[in-house]
Write a protein that binds this DNA or RNA. Structure first.
Lengths: 337, 337
DNA sequence: AATTTTCGAGAAAGCGGTTTCACGATTGAT
DNA sequence: ATCAATCGTGAAACCGCTTTCTCGAAAATT
C-alpha cells in the first residue's frame, strides 16, 4: 500500500471553490470562458492549497507525458554528454523533459531496455550503433516517434542526425598523407558498431585512392583505457600515423605511447574524432575532426518536436565534420621513413 | 484530441483470455495464486498481443513512477556527468530511471523548475549550489524524498553527499606552500555558490595558519572559458600559484597563461579541483583534488533507494578529496620569488 | 451428509485528471 | 411576450491499471 502524498487534488480545489472539477480543470488550463469571478475564485483556492495538477493523472488523461527518452551506449562519453546537454535544454524550452538510459550495461537486452523506457514517455532519441539493422527495423515501429542518432537507415523511416564519418576519416587520412605518412594504423572502435564500420569504409576508399598507402587495423574500443591498452600494438605495427576511433581513444593512446617513450607527434602522429571539449587541451593538442554535438542535440530536438506535433520533421541531416589540425600530427620523421 | 496509441490494454487481454482484468493484473505482477492453466492462458494472450502494462496508468494506480530527477546547475560539467552516469546506472539496476534537468538556464526560477520536475517523479537528487539556504529549506518538504549533493544542511533533513572542499583546498595550499609558494591567487567559482564559499573558508583558515601567506581573490566561474578569461588578471596579481575553482577553470587558465607566454608550472603553478577524467591528460597534467564522482553517484542512489523504501538512509557522507600531484605545480622559481 | 473454512476469481471503486455531452439560464430575434 | 440560439457549468465517462471486497465453489472438518 503506497502511502499517498497529501497533495491537494482537483476535487478538493473544486469543493472549496464551490465549482466542479471540470471548471477547475478548465481554469488551470486556460480554457475557461465563463465569469471572471469564478476563475479568480478557483485560482485563489488553488494558490491557497498550493494545488498543482498531478502530472501522472494529467498524462494519463491526455495520453501524453511531455517526456522523451535519450538512449546511448555510454553516458560517460563526452560526445553523448554534449548531445544530452543541448537536447535536454532544447526540450525543456518546450516543456519536455528527458529520461536517460545507458545501454552499455547489457547490450543483449538493449531492445527490451529501449522498449521499457519508451513506455514511460512519448518518444525516443536513440543512439544504438551496435544494434543490427534487422533489430532496429523490427523495433522501430514500437518506438515511434523516433529520432536516430549516428545512423541513417531508410528502412526505419525515422529522422536521423548523422555524422559523415566516412568523409571525415578520409580528411584525416589526406591530412596525414600530405604530411608524408604512408603507413597508418587504425585503432578500431567497438566491434560491430556502425560508426566504426563507416570509418572503415572511409579508410578503404582512402587506401584505394592513394598510391602506396598501407593501413593496418587493430582492435581498440571507445574509451581512454582502450586507447592506452592499444599503445603497445600500435607501436609494433611500425605505422607512423595512428588514427584512433575517437578522441578518448586518441588521448589514451597518446599517453600510452608517451609512457613507452614514443613521442607524439615526432615518432607517431595521432588523430582522434569528435573534437570533445578537451581535445584541444590534451598533450599534445589533438588533431581531430570537429563535430558540433550541441548543434546535433538541438537539431535532434527540432526533429522530435515536429514528430510529436505530427508535422514533417524535415530532411535528415548529415554533419560534415571539420578537420581541426592541432599538434598531435606532424610531418613524418625521416628517421622512421 | 490526442490520438491514442493502438497498444493492447489489460481489458483486451482479459477479454481474449476469458478472465477479468484483475486476474490479468495479478498474473502480470506475479501475484496470481489460482490455477496454473489460467495463468498460462493469460500469458499466452498477453504475448500474442504483445501486451505490456501502460506505465502511466500503473504509476497512477500505484502512486509511484519509479523515476527520479537529477537536477544540476550545468549538465555540461564533467563532474555532474560522471555523477549522472553512475547514478543512472545504479538506479537502473533497481528499475528506476532518471530524469535530467539543467537549472543554469534561469537561476531565478530554479525553485519552480525543481518543483515541476519533482511532480513528474518520485524523488529528486539535487545539486543547487547557488540556492540560498532559506529557499532550500522552504522548498525541501515539497521535494522529499530528497538527496542533496554538495551541500549538507541539517535544517533540510535530507541525506547529503558532500565533498570536503575546505579540507581539500587546504591540502592544495599546503602542497604549494611546501613548494615554496607564498603568494597565491584564488580564481573564484560562481558567485554565491556554497561550494565556492567553502573553498574560501578553507583558504582563510590556511591563510591564518601559515605564516607569510598572501591570497588574492579574483572573479572566475566554473568553465574553461572562465578560466581563460581570468588568465590576464591572474598574471597581474603577481602570484606564483593559482588555485582555480575547478579543473575546467584550471585548464582554461593554464591555456590562457601559456598563450600569454607564462609557463605553467615554471612561472605559475596552477591547481584544479575534481580530477575530471581529463585532468591527467591536460597540458600540463593537472595537480588537483581527486573526487570519486562515480562513487558519489552510486552512494546517492543508495541513499535514495533507502528513502523511497521508507528505510533509514544511513549517515551523510563527506568525501575527502585526495591530493593528486601532477605536473602543473612545481617549486616556486627563484626568478620570481 | 451437513457445516465450516479456505480458496479462486470477478465486480467495482479507486488513482487524479480531461473532455464530451447535456441542460438550464441568458441573450437575441421576432 | 415567445421562441430560438447561445452560453456557462456540471455530471459522468474515460484514460488503463491495481486492489479491496465479495461471493460462490471447493476442500476440510465433524
Amino acid at each position: 500500500m503506497p502511502s499517498r502524498s497529501t497533495a491537494a487534488t482537483i476535487a478538493e480545489v473544486a469543493r472549496q471553490a464551490g465549482v466542479s472539477p471540470a471548471t477547475v480543470s478548465r481554469v488551470m488550463n486556460g480554457r475557461f470562458l465563463g465569469k471572471p469571478a469564478i476563475a479568480a475564485r478557483v485560482r485563489a483556492v488553488a494558490a491557497d492549497l498550493a494545488y498543482a495538477p498531478n502530472h501522472l493523472a494529467r498524462s494519463l488523461a491526455l495520453g501524453q507525458t511531455s517526456a522523451i527518452a535519450f538512449v546511448v551506449p555510454d553516458l560517460a562519453n563526452p560526445s553523448f554528454q554534449a548531445i544530452l546537454s543541448s537536447l535536454s535544454k532544447a526540450a525543456a524550452r518546450d516543456g519536455y523533459r528527458v529520461l536517460v538510459a545507458d545501454s552499455a550495461e547489457s547490450p543483449a537486452d538493449e531492445p527490451s531496455l529501449i522498449a521499457e523506457i519508451r513506455r514511460r514517455c512519448d518518444a525516443v532519441v536513440l543512439c544504438a550503433p551496435r544494434m543490427s539493422d534487422d533489430q532496429l527495423v523490427s523495433l522501430a515501429d514500437s518506438l515511434r516517434p523516433l529520432v536516430l542518432i549516428n545512423r541513417a537507415n531508410p528502412q526505419v523511416g525515422a529522422p536521423s542526425l548523422a555524422i559523415d564519418y566516412q568523409a571525415g576519416i578520409q580528411d584525416l587520412g589526406k591530412h596525414l598523407y600530405d604530411l608524408g605518412h604512408r603507413h597508418f594504423v587504425f585503432v578500431e572502435g567497438p566491434t560491430g558498431s556502425v560508426s566504426n564500420r563507416q570509418r572503415l569504409y572511409g579508410l578503404e576508399r582512402f587506401e584505394h585512392q592513394m598510391p602506396g598507402v598501407r593501413i593496418d587495423r587493430i582492435a581498440g574500443g571507445a574509451t581512454i583505457e582502450d586507447g592506452l591498452a592499444a599503445a603497445g600494438r600500435v607501436r609494433t605495427t611500425g605505422a607512423t600515423a595512428a588514427l584512433a576511433f575517437n578522441d578518448l581513444v586518441a588521448i589514451g593512446l597518446s599517453d600510452g605511447l608517451r609512457e613507452a617513450g614514443v613521442l607524439v607527434p615526432e615518432d607517431v602522429s595521432v588523430t582522434g574524432f569528435d573534437d570533445i571539449p578537451f581535445a584541444r587541451y590534451s598533450a599534445p593538442p589533438l588533431t581531430t575532426l570537429s563535430v558540433n554535438h550541441e548543434e546535433l542535440g538541438a537539431q535532434a530536438w527540432q526533429r522530435m518536436r515536429a514528430l510529436v506535433a505530427g508535422e514533417a520533421p524535415g530532411p535528415d541531416v548529415v554533419f560534415r565534420p571539420r578537420l581541426e589540425i592541432r599538434r598531435s600530427t606532424s610531418e613524418v620523421s625521416n628517421t622512421r621513413q
